[in-house]
Write a protein that binds this DNA or RNA. Sequence first.
RNA 1: GCGGGAGUAGCCGAGCUAGGUCAAAGGCGCUAGACUCAAGAUCUAGUCCUAUAGGGGUCCGAGGGUUCGAAUCCCUCCUCCCGCACCA
Length: 899
Amino acid sequence: MKSFLETLKNAEEKWRERWRESGIFKPDEGSDKPKYYLLEMYPYPSGTLHMGHMRNYSIGDSIARFKRMKGYDVLYPMGWDSFGLPTENAAIENDISPEKWTERCIEDMKEQMDSLGLSYDWDREVASHWKGYYKWDQWFFLKFLERDLAYKKEAEVNYCSECETVLANEQVEGGRCWRCDSLVEKKDLDQWFFNITEYADELLEDLEELEDWPEKVKKMQQDWIGRSEGAEVLFETTDGEEIPVFTTRPDTLYGCTFMVLAPEHEISEELAEGNDEIEEFIERAKRLKASVREQKGKEGIFTGKYGVNPVNGEKIPIYIADFVLETYGTGAIMAVPAHDQRDFEFAREHDIPIVPVIKPEGEEDFEDLDEAYEDEGVLINSEDYNGMDSEKAWEEITSALEEEGKATREINYRLRDWLISRQRYWGCPIPVVYCDECGTVPVPEDELPVELPTDIDVDVAGNPLKNDESFLKTECPECGGEAERETDTMDTFIDSSWYYLRYCSPDFEEAPFDEGDLEKWMPVDQYIGGIEHAILHLMYSRFFVKVLRDMGMCEMEEPFERLLTQGMVLLDGEKMSKSKGNVVDPGNMIEKYGADTSRYFILSAADPRREVEWSDEGIESKFEFLRKVWQTVEESDFDGNEDIDLENCNLRDRYIVSRTQRVADEVAEDIENFRISDGLKKMEHFFDELLKYRDESEETPERSKIFSKGLETYVRMLYPFSPHLSEEIWHQLGNDELINEVGWPESEDALIDERAERGEELYQKLRDDIIHIKNITEKEPGHIRVIVAEKWKFKAFELIQEKLNEMEKPDMGAIMGDLGGEFPDKKRELSEIAQKAVKNPGKILDRDVDHEFETTTLDQIKARLEREFETEIEIMKAEDVEDEKADRAEPGKPGIILD
RNA sequence: GCGGGAGUAGCCGAGCUAGGUCAAAGGCGCUAGACUCAAGAUCUAGUCCUAUAGGGGUCCGAGGGUUCGAAUCCCUCCUCCCGCACCA
C-alpha cells in the first residue's frame, strides 16, 4: 500500500494539473454570478516564501475556493512588488543584473506558491518592473503633475545613508529607516513630492465609511493624519517683526507668558548669524534631534528679543528651544505654561511667570500649580472674558482677533506631503528631463515609458543612472536641445498604490486599466495582508483612488471594502526572523507533510487575525488526522448516491442526517467570519461523530448510505483547506465532477430533525450521568434501571416554563400560587422545583416536556446503552417504582438506579 | 505621556457585541484503564475542593456596584502586550 505521504504528493500533482486544464481559477466571463474580488498583498520577490506568506496565502486561497463553491465569480490574482532596493543589493552581491535576479526570484517563488496549490489566475499576473506596468506609473506621474499634485521643491528631508536614498515621513519609524533600521539624517535636497495633504481631510473622514476595517488600522491612519483645529495668531516683536504661531487653545491667550521658536526657524537662523552662543545652541539641538530621540529635557536659550501678547499687550520673552518642531504649524509657538505641560516645565526651568487663566469648574483657589491644567474650565485673569466657559471664550477670542486681522482660523495636519524621489537605480524612472533652456520638462505621454536601462553596472557608489550616458543624455521635448534626464526613481509604494487596479485588465494597452473592467471588479471585496502596511501602503492606495476619482477615471471612493490583518507566525512565542535564526521553512514542511497538511495546520492552529504558534507536534497531529480521513475512505464501501429512506431510519440515523445538514451551514458561517479554526474544529468533531456512528450502530443499508452522505459532505467542506486530498477522495468516492463545480454542500431543511437531535442529547446526558454515578460509587452494575419521571411532573415543568416566559423576573410566589391549585397534593415537590426554577430559570427552560417522546426515545436508546455499558438496561416509569431515586427523576433527566 | 488590545482552570485557548442551559467548549500536558511481550500510536474515563448516587462548595486579574441572577453590564485599581511618541 502507498504511504499516506505518497498519496498526498500524487494527489497534489494530479489535481493541480487537472485544475489548470479546467480553467476553474479564472473568472467566469459573462456569467451572472455575483463578483468577488479577493486580494492578498503582492509580495516583494525575495526568492523564498516564508511562513508569513504561507499563512497569508493559505487563508486567502481557502476563502477563494470557498467563495467559488458558494457560487461567486471570483477574481483571485497574484503579482510582484518587484522594484526596490533589496534587489539592487542582492544583485551586486550575486554579481547579476537586478532584472535577471528579479526574474529568477519570481520564478522560484511562483513554483513555491504552486506547490501550495494556490488557486491564482496567473493570466492576470503583474510585476511592477515590467515596462508595460511602470509605464503607467509614469503616466500617473504626468497626470499628477498636470493637476499640481506632483511638484518639486527643496526641503529638509529624511535621508538614510545606509540605503543611500531619501525616505518619506511614513518610512521613518522612531527616527530610523523602516527597512534597514539605521538612523535617519536630515538633509536639504531638491525632491519630488506628491501632494497627499490636499486629500488629508478626505482620507480622514472616509475612514468612517470603512466599516469592515480593523479599528486599529483606522486609528493608526487617523493619528498619522493628525488633524487639529485652531488658529494662526500673529504676534509682533518689540522690533516690529511678525511671528505667526499656531495654537489649538486661543482661549488660553491671556496666559501666554513667553514664545518659543524652533531651532530651524527663520528668525533663529538669523539670530545665529551674529551670536555665537545661539549658533552653538542651534547646532547642538539639530545634532541631538537626529540621534537621541528619547531625550525629554526642554533645553532652550533666550534670544534677547521680546514679543507682544496681542490680547493684553504684555511684553513677553522669546526663546529658542529644541522641543518646538519646525515641521508642525509655523515652527513657533505661544507658550502658556499654566495650561500646557511642556510649556510648564520650560517655564519652571527658566523662571518665567505661570499665569493660570482657566480654572476647573467649581474650584475656588487656583494658583500655585504643580502641573499644567490642560482641560476645559472657566476663564480667569482674562479681562473681559473672565467667568466665561473656555469653549465659548475659544470662539470669542478668536473672532475678536480675526476682526483685528491678527488671527485666522486654521486646520493643521501632522501628515506631510509624500516624498517620492529615490536616489536608487532599481525603480521606475521619473519621466522628466532638465533642459538649460526650458527648465524642467515632463516627458510627453507618447514617449512613455522612459525605460530603465537593464544592461548597466550597478556596483558603483551612488545612483548608477548618473553614470549611464545613454540614459542620461537626451533631447529636450520642447526645444529639441540637449537635456538631461531625471535620475531619481519613484518610491516603490507608487507601484503598489494601484496594482490591484491593473489586475482587472492586466493587458490593457490604452490606459492603466479598462474602466469597464474596473467597474466590474472594484472595489476589492476582501483584502488580506500584514498590519505593517496599516499606514504606508493602505493610505497611499486610498489617496491614489481618490485622485483617480477626481480625474474621472473611476467612481469608487475607496479601494478596499474589507480588510483583514493577519497575525504573525511565532516560534516559542517569538516572531520568526532571519536575524534571530528561528525560521521554519515552508518548503521543508511541504516536503515532509505535503501541502494539504501544511495548509490545514496553519489554518487550524489559530484564527487568521491572531498570532499563531508554530508547533511540530501540531502539524504531526494534523497529518495523522488527515491520514485517518484517508484511511476511512479506503476502507469504506460507498453508496452515497442513493436516496436515504427516512422511514427505515432509527433515531440515531436521523440524528446523523440532521447533523450533516447543520454542520455545512455552521462551517460556512465560520468561514464567512474568518473563524476558520472554529470551522475546522467543528468539521473534525463531525467526522469523529460519523466514525462513531459507523462503528457503533447496526449495519443496515440506511446506515451505509447515511455514513456515505456524511463523508461526502465532510470531504466537500475540506476542499477549501486541503484541496488536493479532498478532490482525490471525492473522486475515489465515485464522483466525476470537480468539487469546485459541485459547490458547497447545501442543507435541506426537510432533513433537519429536531426531535432526533433532542433524542441524541437525552442519550448523551443519560450516558454521562450513568458514568458519573459509576465513578463516584465505584460500582460495576449488573443491571441499570432508567426511570421516566412521573407524568404530572412533565405537566408541571411545562406550566413553569410558561410562567417563566411570561414573567419579567422569576417570582416564587406567583409560580407556586398557580401550580399549587393544579397539583394540590404535590406542594412539597413543587416548591423544590419552583425554587430551582427561580434560582436558575435556564435549567428549567431547556427541558423537553414531552412525556410520550421521552418514553419512546428511551426505548430506542436502550439497546445502545446496553452495548455501551455491557449490561442489561430496564426502562421504567416512576409511577411503577418504589424508590427515592425514582422520585428524583425529572423531565429530561430520568432517574437512574444501578443495581 | 496618548491611544488600542488583553488578563479565564497546570499551559494554550473559546465564551464575553443579545446576563441565566457556565465548573465554564476544544487542544496540550498529566493520571487511570483497555489494547500490547513492551514502548509508541489509538480508544475510554478523570484532571478546583468535596462527596461510596447524578449532590454541595469555591471560581473566570483585584475590589466595589447594578440585577432575582454576572466570566459576561457599570466604576475604581493592578498587570501585560502593541502602536504613536515633545504635533502646541
